[in-house]
Write a protein that binds this DNA or RNA. Structure first.
Lengths: 141, 141
DNA sequence: AAAGATTGACTTGTCAATCTTA
DNA sequence: TAAGATTGACAAGTCAATCTTT
């Protein structure tokens, strides 16, 4: 098996899907895909701190802090002092943030359905299982 | 099937693998992974222009031009005026570039073997086939 | 001291405008 | 006019240094 080829295909596929989805979102007047990812984390993880965003997106804490800055500057979330630990803040979606999330999410779904239409359902499932296993194998290191 | 979860796992897996491999390379005194990718294209595609790098890496032409700038600044490739079309240059690896490529490549292989050790061989093969199919489905659009 | 977060300097990508040659 | 490439302004990540609170 040619592992370098697998890695190359993984990276390029991710690049193309990311850029294509991001372009769709921007053209449709929605938030960029990076912003959407943050909104999804804020919606799914509660309570949510900067650290939780970093972990969910597999990026550095510094990067997550800056990403939250941008989302907050657009009025999509607020930092509230954390009563349990004053070193951190709790991040909460605003109504505008929830609206942006609700508008953008379906567009991503559309794109993904098109991308994966090339594959029969059982292989899509298998693909998802494999990705999940490879990812969970990593976090155990 | 949860397509959003598949996309999320794809993006995060790529992020982790990329960052882990890049860290290994830098720690070992080798070129960064982005540079290695360019070297691999210059080695595989001949003759190679900036446009070919952009296509192979699925990045913009502007980004490819800058990436080649960096590789050239490190002395790993040279731009030679293209006799067949004077709008473009032909890119060639230098001896130093070939050395850097030969040193870095095996380290990436090591990392990938570790990452994929979590999976039996037949599923690694299947994973590779799926990635290739999904990618080729894209280029036809 | 260690943990959470922020900040500044840097890397590497995008896009739009521009230049040169076809 | 279009194609190949370059450039400058900007976007979004990394890391290391720092600040505050535990």
């Amino acid at each position: 098996v040619d592992l370098e080829r697998i890695f190359d295909d993984l990276v390029r596929l991710e690049t193309r899907w990311w850029n294509d989805l991001d372009t769709r979102l921007r053209r449709g007047g929605d938030v960029p895909l990076g912003t959407l990812n943050v909104l999804q984390v804020l919606d799914a993880v509660r309570p949510c701190r900067v650290q939780d965003v970093a972990q969910a997106l597999e990026i550095s804490v510094g990067g997550a802090s800056q990403a939250v800055d941008r989302v907050e500057a657009k009025g999509f979330c607020v930092r509230t002092p954390n009563p349990a630990d004053r070193r951190s803040s709790v991040l909460d979606l605003t109504d505008a943030g929830r609206d942006a999330l609700a508008r953008a999410r379906p567009r991503v779904g559309e794109g993904l359905r098109e991308f994966l239409a090339a594959l029969p359902d059982d292989r899509v499932e298998e693909f998802g299982r494999t990705l999940a296993e490879l990812r969970s194998a990593l976090t155990k290191e």
